[in-house]
Design a protein around this nucleic acid. Sequence first.
DNA 1: TAGTCATATCGATGTTTCTAGATTTGAGGT
DNA 2: ACCTCAAATCTAGAAACATCGATATGACTA
Lengths: 117, 117
Amino acid sequence: MEDYLKYARIFKALGEPKRAMIVDMLSCGELCACMILEKFEMSQSTLSHHMKLLCECGLVKAREQGKWTYYSLDMDTINSTRQFLCNITSDKENCICKEDADRGKGCDECDENDEND
Amino acid sequence: MEDYLKYARIFKALGEPKRAMIVDMLSCGELCACMILEKFEMSQSTLSHHMKLLCECGLVKAREQGKWTYYSLDMDTINSTRQFLCNITSDKENCICKEDADRGKGCDECDENDEND
DNA sequence: TAGTCATATCGATGTTTCTAGATTTGAGGT
DNA sequence: ACCTCAAATCTAGAAACATCGATATGACTA
């Protein structure tokens, strides 16, 4: 699946504490870059870099207005990410490890051992 | 919050496509390392490294039995991660950006602009 | 107790990512 | 036209990470 690539990018974006905090801030509504910058000890260029990553993975939308840029969450991406997280962490029939129906084959020793346990 | 640190680690772990696939595989039940290794083009040492990361962040539990190591998801961590993702992406009262009640102050120009829109 | 096998750890290398200062861009105001 | 300001981009250095081959560990086996 290429979904793994798409969502890996998103998780990687959330895998930086400051970016997760930015997402949290934006969850309460649209904010302009300078507002976000005030909350962090971070240079303007660093913030810009983080916002670019958040936008590129689809979590955040940017809206330019005059000199300012306003950021907000893209709830479609958020919702599909929640769904993806549930999918990969829930038992299911079409799991990657079942897709060629060989869960019981391959590593014979392990399998035997598994059953004898 | 130090929660951001904890969950950033988890998202970082999921931010690697192969690790996300491993989690997906484990969602269907416990697997031994050699089973996982068969599914990927990856050296044994690399897999071991990935499994270590997944264990260290709490997503995965390891159970040693003789020569083999069996891995499974830690559903407590999984559930709290789902919850955390929901928290930081949902509007709320105790949002980081509201915690000192200054959402309307700070960047005066932005704020004016925001309201005039 | 010597050998084999599964897994972990070590050491090295190339790649990616974070970060900040400097510069550029583009919009508004004078 | 010029200046100012917000934000993006460029450049470069430092830190973190992925990967692999080699080696170590520790369990079972002959």
